[in-house]
């Protein structure tokens, strides 16, 4: 990394900070409980739209892992999401009617909220259908992981998105509020991931899984990116630059070992493909508020209905983190 490239990255970081500053005006504070955040508390940040049904399980899941406060940006939900969130004692809520695409798919809003509230906190930035799994997550709370990362002066933790799906038609089993979606969508693709290093930000660009297999067989380069760096010991100068796939400064993206060793990593179980997704796919394809004009959602809308079965004979059923570790999808690294 030469001086010029470092300087370019610095400019780029400033650009994203400026964007966040401008988009800040789009946010209305609905409920600000950030004063109750204790020093060192673990935070969860999220942007969402019409996720009322998924919320109770989502909040509980991360509370159980040890998240102490939620920073949530609601993008014009019509299903009672804001009301539900306001009533939660550990949620601070912002709302906006502005365009999701216009704020770089929520990144600008998140960067602003993180800059204001997450400085010096470990912060987990996830979507409402993403569930973090990390080594020993059944016996060690999130705090054990962040303490261990702190001790090693590690600032960020990588967790690839693992797309989960049910066996049988997606629409067969309706998702009920409060239910564990991984109980329905409990299958995944274990070994068809394609990886390339992104020379710009130094992160890995990972594609594959069921979405590449089923929807992007003809133009794989369009398949969604699965690499994520969701857990970061935040500093007010950090910015996410493309969803949670990459951050600046670049050092935060080196969550893998380029020299042959394995770094400690986790997975985000992505419970996208449950019954609630079907209506969503139609709506989002029409709205074109997602990445690449929602090309992904268009692909779903064409190739997906209530009868679609994403399962195949080689699919694996989720058991626990140890299974995922053995398969090499994530790694214990030197955490033992």
């Amino acid at each position: 990394m030469g001086l010029i490239s470092s300087y370019r990255m610095r400019l780029r970081r400033r650009y994203w900070r400026l964007r966040a500053l401008r988009r800040q005006r789009q946010l209305t504070t609905v409920r600000d409980r950030t004063r109750t955040i204790a020093p060192g508390a673990i935070l969860v940040a999220s942007t969402m739209r019409n996720e009322r049904m998924r919320l109770p399980y989502f909040l509980d899941y991360y509370r159980r892992l040890g998240a102490e406060h939620f920073l949530i940006i609601d993008n014009d939900s019509q299903d009672g999401t804001p009301d539900y969130l306001q009533a939660q004692p550990d949620v601070s809520l912002w709302t906006t009617k502005a365009s999701y695409a216009g704020s770089a798919y929520g990144v600008d809003w998140l960067n602003w909220v993180l800059r204001q509230n997450a400085h010096r906190h470990w912060c987990l930035t996830v979507d409402v259908d993403e569930f973090l799994v990390y080594p020993f997550c059944d016996t060690r709370p999130l705090r054990a992981l962040t303490d261990w990362l702190d001790a090693g002066q590690v600032r960020s933790f990588g967790a690839m998105l693992l797309d989960m799906y049910p066996k049988g038609p997606i629409g067969r089993r309706a998702y009920r509020e409060g239910e564990d979606p991984i109980g329905i969508a409990s299958w995944f693709d274990a070994g068809n991931y394609m990886i390339e290093r992104n020379p710009l930000y130094g992160n890995l660009w990972i594609q594959g899984g069921v979405r590449a297999r089923r929807f992007f067989g003809n133009d794989p380069w369009k398949a969604p990116a699965l690499n994520k760096v969701p857990l970061v010991r935040w500093h007010r100068d950090y910015v996410y630059v493309s969803s949670t796939h990459a951050l600046l400064p670049r050092g935060l993206n080196f969550t893998y070992d380029p020299a042959g060793g394995e770094k400690t990593t986790g997975l985000l179980l992505h419970a996208k493909f449950v019954s609630t997704f079907l209506d969503r796919a139609q709506e989002e394809a029409g709205r074109a508020e997602h990445y690449r004009n929602a090309a992904e959602y268009e692909a779903y809308a064409e190739g997906l209905d209530a009868e679609t079965d994403l399962w195949c004979r080689a699919s694996e059923r989720f058991v626990n983190w140890k299974q995922l570790e053995l398969m090499g999808l994530m790694s214990k690294g030197n955490w033992a």
């Binding site: 990588g158 967790a159 690839m160 991931y193 990886i195 290093r197 890995l204 990972i206 690499n227 969550t255 893998y256 070992d257 380029p258 042959g260 060793g261 394995e262 770094k263 400690t264 990593t265 090499g328 999808l329 994530m330 790694s331 214990k332 690294g333 030197n334």
Partner: peptide
């Protein structure tokens, strides 16, 4: 595992 990893594995942890 941290130093040399599992040979032949290409993943988010080892590339």
């Amino acid at each position: 595992r941290r130093a040399s990893g599992r040979a032949g594995l290409y993943s988010q942890a080892r590339f």
